[in-house]
Design a protein around this nucleic acid. Structure first.
Lengths: 339, 339
DNA sequence: ATGAAAGCGCTAACAC
DNA sequence: GTGTTAGCGCTTTCAT
């Protein structure tokens, strides 16, 4: 049943009495092959259950239609969404995404990239713009198109698609200050792990400072269920600093946890306390109140990145790097006063 | 900066004055190489920025240390968790997982598998036991170890690791009936898309029938935000069938939506209405009440599957297929009466 | 429209 | 310890 040796082109060639070369042409739909031989070859290949060996094909043709996609995590719903955008576009090309996960560790990013490059992909899409020197060197030396995604606050190796998280933080700060909130608390992930969250925080505090406001309290977490963490941190923070009138969360999950907690406590939102998160995750739709948030343009980032890669991998390419900054929009929901 | 032609072993060989073969040995840490040449080669390779070509290596050695992992989706948190289990184990081996996503479409499953097999992976881990004939044929003919995961209600091609969803449905039915609930509503995904949800439902209704209970109302959804859907469906169902005293959801996300809705309405849980979901997702930890649920053993399934694959890929393998049925446990939480 | 020869970059197997 | 020789299974190129 399960033959030990996988079938080769040669097997199909012999079984059909057609040269390997012609079989190869048929199977790839290349060049002129008479209808007759075509059908015969196809029939034999199918009957035998032949599966082409891409290893050999890739080596011979020096072409590998794989795009390495390197992301920090799959558990954060942000990245599956980016993948969706990438697949949307690549599905119409011969290119295929292959995912590598770094767990936010620069060391793993390095190994994962090295591993992927050793398969000689046609391009790389990689999250973030901060990488170790070794990683940057490898990207640079690879000679293939690179697109750094999610974040545009930095200098790309090649192309770049994302939003400015610093600006996103500033925008939210302005929206909050404009509504007259003054005593502001911040909750988020431990910074060294997440550059984009850090930049949002920096932009946020910086813009508040210009309005003469300082973040009154802040807390950072790591690991665990984000929803539960949001609940716990919110409780702890309000116990510590009861006069806060706004809570800014670095992601929607902890924001949702905080929202649920405050609703239970019967606290009036947004008049007593306003809330905002970040990401625009689908989850929020089912919450009792719509959390104010900002869309990080995740699917669009995936699409644009894939489009750049597809163009750069095509024959007629000018080879020019592209830089695309998308604009996140605030949605006020029910947790941020308006007007 | 970005040289057009990638470096080859030969380049390293020439630059270091050592034969290609010895360079190859050094880079793979194989055979005896004198300390001196070792260091020299390593230095040169690093300095040049050489990245080995696995395509060529794989073709020559007839060995590809890739494990194809084929799953329906990345958006359903279940699968990233299975991936975590798989990575946990494979990280200690030379094997690497490569993910393919089918979007629950048998047709895509077929293409994805074909594509992956064409890279001649060392093994396949694939979700579910229902596959098209073509898919089964390919798996069979591949001659490599196959592990079907998540579900044990069916006949595997080779090895199998999972839980019995039918039994899981029955267990929940018994737990519910034991507490005296009688008017039971069911909400879940549209069945043809999700065999495991279907089996749980079948086991559930079957076990209830034995207790003389019939499902009083049911509704199925497709697409959209699960949390929001749970909310909407719950509202609609209670409007339609107000005397229900228990709601069984085919996943925790819609269950959570229902829970939030009922809490808002001020309905007493679990005395007025009991609730249960399925999966034991981390998200639930942050909810105001703990939803009753069942752990689907996702990480453990990933681990066990990877262990089987690792063993089967090792030299000393008896080649015997393994079948492992894990036992999901009910957690009653706060939404299912007890005793 | 089809075939023959050469070789992609590496490693297994065997010398030395 | 190190080098040499043959391929791995395809595709490219050029001939017919």
């Amino acid at each position: 049943m399960s033959s030990k040796r996988p079938l080769t082109l040669r097997d199909v060639s012999e079984a059909s009495g057609v040269s390997e070369m012609t079989v190869s042409r048929v199977l790839r739909g290349r060049g002129d092959v008479s209808e007759g031989t075509r059908d015969k070859v196809l029939a034999v290949a199918k009957q035998l259950g032949y599966v082409p060996n891409k290893i050999a094909g890739a080596l011979a043709s020096q072409r590998v239609n794989l795009i390495a996609v390197i992301i920090p995590s799959l558990s954060n719903m942000v990245f599956p969404e980016v993948m969706t955008g990438i697949s949307d576009i690549l599905d119409d090309t011969p290119l295929q995404p292959v995912v590598g996960v770094t767990n936010y560790l620069p060391g793993r990013e390095e190994t994962v990239l090295y591993e992927m490059l050793s398969w000689r992909p046609s391009g790389v899409i990689i999250a973030g713009v901060e990488h170790s020197d070794a990683t940057r060197a490898m990207l640079q030396a690879s000679g293939i198109p690179i697109v750094e995604i999610m974040d545009v606050d930095g200098t790309p190796v090649d192309s770049m698609v994302g939003i400015s998280h610093r600006r996103a933080g500033r925008m939210m700060a302005h929206a909050i200050a404009a509504e007259g909130y003054k005593r502001i608390g911040f909750m988020g992930t431990k910074m060294p792990l997440d550059h984009r969250a850090r930049k949002r925080f920096e932009g946020f505090t910086e813009a508040l400072a210009k309005e003469g406001i300082e973040v009154a309290d802040q807390e950072f977490y790591q690991g665990g269920s984000a929803l539960a963490k949001g609940r716990e941190m919110t409780e702890a923070m309000l116990k510590r600093t009861p006069d806060l009138d706004f809570l800014y969360y670095s992601n929607d999950m902890i924001g949702a946890g905080g929202l649920l907690y405050l609703l239970e406590k019967g606290i009036n939102i947004p008049s007593e306390i306003g809330l905002a998160g970040f990401n625009g995750v689908e989850l929020l739709q089912g919450l009792p109140r719509q959390l104010a948030t900002m869309d990080a343009c995740r699917i669009e980032i995936g699409r644009k990145a894939a489009e750049i890669i597809a163009r750069r991998c095509s024959d007629d390419d000018d080879g020019a790097p592209e830089m695309i900054e998308l604009s996140p929009k605030i949605s006020f929901g029910d947790t941020l006063k308006r007007g």
